[in-house]
Write a protein that binds this DNA or RNA. Sequence first.
DNA 1: GTCTATAACCGGATAGAC
DNA 2: GTCTATCCGGTTATAGAC
Lengths: 219, 219
Amino acid sequence: MTSPNAAAQHATVRSAPKLTIRQTNEKLIMAAAEEVFAQVGFKGATTGAIARLAGVPKANLHYYFSTKAELYRRVTEDVCEHWLAAARAFDETNDPKTAIGGYIRAKMEQARRRPFGSRVWAMEILRGAPVIDGYLHNTLKTWFEGRKVKLKEWIEAGKMDPVDPQALLFMIWGTTQHYADFARQISVLNNDQSLDDAQFAQATDEVCRIILSGIGLKS
Amino acid sequence: MTSPNAAAQHATVRSAPKLTIRQTNEKLIMAAAEEVFAQVGFKGATTGAIARLAGVPKANLHYYFSTKAELYRRVTEDVCEHWLAAARAFDETNDPKTAIGGYIRAKMEQARRRPFGSRVWAMEILRGAPVIDGYLHNTLKTWFEGRKVKLKEWIEAGKMDPVDPQALLFMIWGTTQHYADFARQISVLNNDQSLDDAQFAQATDEVCRIILSGIGLKS
DNA sequence: GTCTATAACCGGATAGAC
DNA sequence: GTCTATCCGGTTATAGAC
């Protein structure tokens, strides 16, 4: 796969201190792509629209990302990475109330701060996840099984009610992501105004309270 | 626009007892459209693919539905109607546990039986709901406000915990629809098998149990 | 590394015979 | 009411000058 001295071939890479033009432009294009993909889907997005929003010529986009599909793949994978990072709050304690509550809050925070990413993810799953299929089978599945084990241990130790760990995790995902994915519907039902910070904080508290109380972890 | 005796011209229409060719073909095309739209989105769907799945020539589809957008609108509105019908279980009692539990079960049943419809709806909201905007503002908003009032009454009567009605409804929507919209992800995490009837029934029970218990309506 | 011009292709919609 | 053949507009991707 690699030559014996592959590492030596690119010794200069290690010392590159600031962002290259390439890195800057790729970030710019990916941010624009995340927004456009979220708004009109994969097929609905045109490379022209993404390039315009990013402020670069269309041919320039194709210089950095050979095809629209590859750009989409890069965006989706980047969303996945941040998703997992938010999930780590789950592991930092052995107290289920702190762990689950912290996880819910982290997911709500993510829904608030990166709604476009959540929507790209949702659309990808809705389509049957053709692009991130491998990721689902590997990274996500592993994480999921690990969490299920942990929840079962807490249940067996009597620290929380005996609920189906799977149903609990799906409820957390469905509820938290709903605030990003269905934001338009929520805004219409909120008198045509997006939830403000106070309303979102209250929603977060309520979600925590209902779920924690629902699994026997009353405040 | 019409001649004075336009009605007399088609006196036979009134007496047509069984489904006309038109009605039959429209049903066929709409069912195919629901599936294709759910799988590849509005822009990704081609009238050719819809026609092929429906078993009619493409030009025939355009004979019944002048444009792809109109076909999409018809499909989405039809989904909405069934959505509301499922919601009526909410109103048939004054006992919150029966009402909310029944509503959750009806929503889960809908997610199970008509996943494509749920996904078309989800995609439409994800895109910002350009087509069903009016429906959201009128029908859904009215229903939503009515339910909020009812929940508040139950809370004031001490029949359930004082939770934010909005957060509760969003949790029910997000959780139940997750089983239709994220079915692919769920199936991957379930060892590449869709939930079978028993698993789905158990999930329904768990969702009911956690939510009802979370708002002070323990079994 | 940037950008204009263009090639190659595809999908929605229709014309018009049956 | 059905269907084949076709037009037209729009999109991806690239060629090639700067």
